[in-house]
């Protein structure tokens, strides 16, 4: 039997074909270039590129600061999500809308704005300066920038779960004699946890690859405040394509792993809450 009439709705071949071709041309083939290029390097060359002390220092900074920033966002993002869904307060709608600012604001703009605020003559920086706390042009600056760009993730993954959470569960907990804190700790929090972890992972993944907002505020001092994406750029500017590609391949592999972890977390969240996100 011919395959022509097999499907009732038209356009399957066309739409899937276009999808695959476009995906291959824009994403898959160019991405494969990184790995193909890496295979032309000797093991020694590769190690030199990806494991030199300066690059190792950048990994430590990038992953350490990303982890810390995601952690900060997990804590404060949960608070914000809770406040936004549970408490009526003036300006709530505006705050809610502005939460997405880091998604909408170009990273370069965020970078220079954060630098202006947290530099020693800035609004916040000048307050911290007398206390001996220096934020801009050092690792704390990286942390500030990464916190900024990761802020919406936890709020936006936790918020829908909180909204869908029927009051019944807490009513049941209360009727069984639980205090508010017990109800939160034993009933609400376990329900939120997968979403919280997903938000954390998303914020972390985004922070690891971030470039634009960091380079203005970091100071970019080798071995101290130089992030890995900047290492790639620097190598490119020195026409060290192989070195740049090698470091990029390490970052890509880590991105893929994070993607897998996040997919798993999202499946977990969906199972736990019966809600696809």
């Amino acid at each position: 039997m011919s395959g022509v009439n097999k499907r009732v709705l038209p356009g399957f071949g066309l739409s899937l074909g276009f999808t695959l071709v476009y995906l291959s041309l824009i994403v898959l083939i160019p991405l494969s270039a990184v790995f193909i290029k890496t295979t032309t390097m000797s093991w020694h060359e590769f190690l030199d590129a990806v494991a030199s002390p300066r690059v190792i220092a950048s990994y430590k900074l990038t992953f350490g600061a990303s982890f810390l920033a995601a952690l900060i966002n997990a804590v404060f993002g949960l608070l914000l999500a809770w406040g936004l869904t549970r408490y009526p307060f003036p300006g709530r709608k505006i705050v809610d809308a502005l939460i997405d600012l880091p998604f909408a604001l170009p990273t370069a703009v965020a970078g220079i704005a954060l630098t202006a605020i947290y530099a020693k003559n800035g609004w916040v920086g000048s307050l911290l300066e007398p206390l001996g706390i220096k934020i801009a042009f050092g690792p704390p600056g990286v942390l500030v920038a990464l916190t900024f760009i990761g802020l919406p993730f936890v709020v936006r993954t936790v918020q829908p779960v909180l909204e869908d959470l029927e009051t019944e569960y807490e009513e049941a907990a209360a009727s069984l004699g639980a205090t508010r804190w017990q109800a939160f700790q034993r009933v609400v929090f376990p329900t939120l946890f997968p979403a919280l972890l997903t938000g954390f992972a998303l914020a972390f993944a985004r922070a690891v690859g971030e470039y634009g907002s960091v380079i203005f505020i970091a100071g970019n001092i080798p071995m101290v405040s130089e992030i890995t994406p900047l290492i790639i750029i620097t190598k490119l500017e020195q026409f060290d394509y192989k070195g740049a590609t090698a470091v990029a391949s390490v970052m890509l592999v880590i991105s893929f792993l994070l993607l897998l972890v996040i997919n798993g977390l999202q499946a977990w969240t969906a199972r736990r809450t019966g809600r696809a996100i």
């Binding site: 160019p30 270039a33 890509l252 996040i262």
Partner: peptide
Amino acid sequence: LPFSVSPVVAGLIYVLV
């Protein structure tokens, strides 16, 4: 996938091609 790739790597791949 493109969401999880660092923008810098996104630029680099086209340089390689």
